[in-house]
Amino acid sequence: MTQELIIDIATAKRSAETAEIMRRYNDVFQSHDPSALDELVADGCVIENTTPAPDGARRTGKAACVELWSAIATAPGTHFDLEETYVAGDRATIRWRFWMSDGNSLRGVNLMRVVDGRIVEAMGYVKG
Rank of each mutant, 00 (worst) to 15 (best):
V66P: 00
V66T: 03
E67Q: 12
M22Q: 02
L111P: 00
T11C: 07
D81N: 07
Y86D: 05
R91P: 00
R113D: 01
W96R: 01
R58V: 08
I94T: 06
E20Q: 15
L82S: 10
G61N: 02
N110Y: 07
A16K: 15
M22V: 03
V46N: 04
F29M: 05
T60Y: 08
E48Y: 14
A36Y: 08
L68T: 02
Y86C: 07
R97E: 05
K127L: 15
L37Y: 05
Q30L: 14
S70F: 05
P76Q: 07
R97G: 01
A71E: 11
W69D: 00
A71S: 13
G117F: 10
G124V: 04
D55I: 10
A53D: 07
T93Y: 12
G56V: 01
V120P: 01
I9L: 15
E84W: 06
L37M: 06
A92E: 02
N49D: 10
R91F: 06
A64V: 04
T18Y: 06
R91Q: 07
R97C: 04
V126I: 15
E20L: 14
G56M: 04
S70C: 03
K13G: 03
S70G: 06
A36H: 08
E39K: 12
E48K: 15
R23Q: 10
S70I: 04
S15K: 07
G77D: 05
A12F: 11
E121C: 09
M1V: 08
T50D: 09
D43S: 10
T51L: 11
T51D: 08
T50M: 13
Y25W: 14
R107P: 02
V109L: 10
G77C: 04
T18G: 01
F98A: 02
G77R: 11
V28H: 02
S101F: 12
G128I: 14
I9K: 14
Q30N: 12
D43F: 09
V126N: 09
R118L: 03
F98W: 10
D81W: 06
T51A: 10
H32K: 14
R24T: 04
R23P: 00
S101Q: 14
V126K: 13
A53M: 12
A71W: 09
I21P: 00
V120I: 12
L5N: 13
A63D: 06
L5F: 13
I21S: 02
S105P: 01
G56P: 00
A122D: 11
F80R: 09
R58W: 07
C45P: 01
R95V: 01
L37A: 03
V46H: 08
T18A: 03
Y25L: 06
G77Y: 10
T85V: 09
G128R: 15
N49W: 11
D27W: 12
V28L: 06
E84P: 01
A12Q: 12
M1Y: 11
E67Y: 05
S70M: 05
A16I: 07
R14T: 08
D102R: 11
R58H: 05
R113A: 02
M100K: 15
M112C: 08
V66R: 04
I6C: 11
V87N: 00
E67G: 01
V109P: 00
T93A: 14
I21N: 01
G103N: 10
A122M: 14
D55F: 13
